[in-house]
Design a protein around this nucleic acid. Sequence first.
DNA 1: GGAATAGTGTCTATGAGACATTATCTT
DNA 2: AAGATAATGTCTCATAGACACTATTCC
Lengths: 250, 250
Amino acid sequence: MSEEQYLAAYDPRAYPAVAVTVDVVTLTIREGALHLLLVRRAEQPYADFWALPGGFVRPAEDLDAAAGRELAEETGLGGEDLHRVHLEQLASYGTPGRDPRMRVVSIAYLAFAPDLPEPSAGTDAGEAEWLPLAALPSRRLAFDHERIVADGLERARAKLEYTPLATRFLGEEFTIADLRAVYETVWGHPLHAGNFHRKVLSVPGLVESTGATTEHGGPRGGPRARLYRAGDARLLHPALLRPATEETAR
Amino acid sequence: MSEEQYLAAYDPRAYPAVAVTVDVVTLTIREGALHLLLVRRAEQPYADFWALPGGFVRPAEDLDAAAGRELAEETGLGGEDLHRVHLEQLASYGTPGRDPRMRVVSIAYLAFAPDLPEPSAGTDAGEAEWLPLAALPSRRLAFDHERIVADGLERARAKLEYTPLATRFLGEEFTIADLRAVYETVWGHPLHAGNFHRKVLSVPGLVESTGATTEHGGPRGGPRARLYRAGDARLLHPALLRPATEETAR
DNA sequence: GGAATAGTGTCTATGAGACATTATCTT
DNA sequence: AAGATAATGTCTCATAGACACTATTCC
C-alpha cells in the first residue's frame, strides 16, 4: 500500500480521539524572585501533584483564547489587568504516553505577568500558588510539565535580550533600577547599574520618560529616581546581551 | 456553574473529534534562490491547490517523527540523507475553521535541506515541486499555509543569525563563498565578501577547515578556495547580525 | 593580458564594560 | 554626618564595516 493510498484511506475520525489542551507557563516577580504559577490537581492522573494551569481547548475556541482563558481563571484577572500580561505560544508537546489516559497534544504558552495578588483569592479555581523557581528542583510536576517549564524559562531569558518584554513584569511606571532588577532576576546575574542605565536609555523605544520621579528616595538613601513607561519598540536594536555565562552552546 | 465544575464535567471524548496534523515548511537553495517544497492536493477541500506537505499524526507516533515521515515521503530521502536535514518545530495553528471539514490543529515544522533532486522522482507522493519563493506571492496556498510559510521564513532568517544552520543548506564540504551565498539568499541582502570571510572564521565552532581546496577556481576566474565543513557549535557567539534592513520592529 | 575571486591588512566608528564622580536622599 | 543610590563622565578594548591590496585562476 503506497503512502498515497494510505493517506487517502486515512480517516482520522476512525481513530481514537486526540485531545488538545493548552498549558501556560506564567512567570512573575515577587519579592525579588522569579515565581511560577502552579495549580494542584484534584483528580487522577497525577492527583495532588502540582501542574501548570491548563485544560482542554473548547470547540470553536482559538488556541490563544484558550490560553488566555486558563490564565484568567487561575489568576482571577479581569479584562483590563489581563491585557497587561504578555502571552505567547511556546511550543507543542505530543509524545505518546505523556498523558496515561489518552493521546493528548498540549500547546504550551508562556506568560509574563506583573506582580499579582495571590491567585486563589476571588477565583473559582482550586488550590493555586506562586512557586519560587528556586524551589522547583525539589518538586515533581505532573505530566511532562517540568520539561515545559524548562523550555519556557530558556525562552524567557532569551526574549529579554531582544524584546522589551521585561517591562511586562513591572507596573505602568517604573524606574531604571526596577527594570534592572527584572533582568537580574530572570538572568540570575548581577548587572552593572551605571552601564545598564545608559544602555537602556540608548536603545530606541525600550522606555520613554514620564517626566515624573518617585515620591521618595530608596529605602536606604539615594536620590529620587525618574519614572519611565514601556516604549513602543517590539524588538530591540541593538539587543541587551546577557553576560557570557557558560559555553552552553557547544 | 463554576469553572471548576465545568472542567470536572468536561469530557473531551464527548465532543466532536479534534484532528492533529503536522505541516512542514521545507526550504532549500536551488540555483541561487530560496525554494519551498509544495505538494498539490488531490482531494477536497482545496483540491488542486498547492499546500505544505503534511498529514495526520498517527497513533503512538511522536510529533517530530510525524514531521520527519512527511518530509521523507515527499522528498524521497532515505535515512542517511534525511539525517542531514535540519528539522525543528515552528508553531501550532488551530484557529477554528481553518479546515472546513472539522477542527484541525496543525503543528508546523521548519526544515532546512541541502539541494535535493526533484521531489517527485522515486516517490509515492503525488505531484510535488520546489517553488521559488519569489513566485510565492502570486500563488494562493491551501488552508492558512501562506501564514505558516511567512512565519517559517521569518524564523529561518532569524536563526541564521545565531545558529550555524546555514550549513544545512550546503553539502558536506563547502567554501566560505558558498556559505555567504546562503546568507545572501535567505536574507535577500548582499554581504561584503572580505568582512564575511573574516567574521565566519572568527566565530568559534561555525566551520572547521578540511585542509583541502576546490579542484578549480571559480567559473570566471579567481584562486581555488579552501574547503570547510560545519563546526560543532550549536549557537553562535557572537552572532552574525544581519544588516539593518528596516525598522520592522516598531 | 584582463577580469574575477580568495584571502588578508588597515582604518574608523560604535558599543560594551570597568571604573570614577557628582548630586541627592534616608537614617 | 554617614551611607546608599541615581545619573553621568571617562577610558579601554573588541567588533562591524568600509576600503584597499595581493595572489591566484579562468578566459
